[in-house]
């Protein structure tokens, strides 16, 4: 497992696309945090740090492109088959893959946090920042479990890239539409829709961001539980499907 992770990680660090993404994450967040006050679509602003939360959408957006491009080489070059021949179990391969893309996401999050903290003129309490980052990391991991599930179970590299990028686009539009539908429904339905929005990783981004209505926000503990449930379900389901997959 450790060898597999090291191999993935060293290959990942050589990816120019990832390095460019990290630099961009820092630059865009810094610019957005220091110039966010000019955007009149944002509301519920308590400090400059809130502007950076809108820019945090770039992390799942980037990962939806990076993950298929990084992992498509696995099937293309027969690397997965070689790993199996070397005696690595499918479970080890699955977890090492997930851990490596999680490491990429953590690097992106670190760049985002640096941009946000340096760009913000006013900051909330340290506890608020820590909770926000914890929630961000968890919903991004939840999204990565979906991306890894698709990458390791669909062999066609073009289809994987299209599915994963479109999954990001559509989950973004879906949460915006669900938020719009919420305004037209009663209290009971509102709670169900709020849970649905928060179950979608991009939906949790929306509920944290200054673009959201207050009605879609759930308590931090519920959001963390929803992310944990999605992570567990996707890992269990993904591993089951991957174990049964016919790898040529």
């Amino acid at each position: 497992m450790k060898n597999l992770f090291n191999a993935y990680f060293s290959r990942m660090l050589r990816q120019k696309f990832l390095l460019a993404g990290i630099v961009l994450a820092f630059a865009i967040t810094y610019w957005f945090t220091s110039n966010g006050s000019g955007l009149n679509i944002l509301h519920r602003i308590n400090s400059d740090f809130d502007f950076s939360l809108a820019a945090a959408l770039g992390i799942p957006a980037f990962m939806s492109l990076f993950t298929p491009l990084f992992l498509s080489a696995e099937y293309k070059g027969g690397t997965i088959r070689n790993k199996l021949i070397c005696g690595k179990s499918r479970g080890e391969i699955y977890f090492a893959t997930l851990l490596s893309v999680t490491a990429a996401m953590l690097l992106m999050t670190a760049a985002w946090a640096a941009g946000a903290l340096l760009g913000a003129g006013t900051l909330p309490a340290a506890g608020v920042i820590a909770w926000t980052i914890a929630k961000m990391i968890l919903y991004n991991i939840a999204y990565l479990t979906i991306l890894v599930f698709i990458s390791l179970n669909v062999t066609n590299e073009a289809a994987v890239t299209a599915i994963e990028f479109m999954s990001f686009q559509f989950s973004f539009f879906a949460v915006l539409m669900l938020q719009m539908v919420m305004g037209m429904t009663g209290d009971g339905a509102c709670k169900v829709i709020a849970m649905m929005i928060n179950l979608i990783p991009v939906g949790q981004w929306l509920s944290l961001s200054p673009l959201a209505d207050e009605s879609i926000q759930l308590s931090s503990s519920v959001q963390l539980i929803l992310s944990a449930v999605l992570i567990t379900a996707m890992i269990v389901y993904g591993m089951t499907v991957f174990r049964k997959k016919d790898i040529k």
């Binding site: 492109l65 491009l69 498509s72 590299e157 073009a158 994987v160 890239t161 990028f165 479109m166």
Partner: peptide, 14 residues
């Protein structure tokens, strides 16, 4: 590269 072609196409459209 087909994966890159799909990624660039989707990015360009976006």
């Amino acid at each position: 590269s087909k994966a890159h072609a799909v990624a660039v196409s989707l990015m360009a459209v976006m």
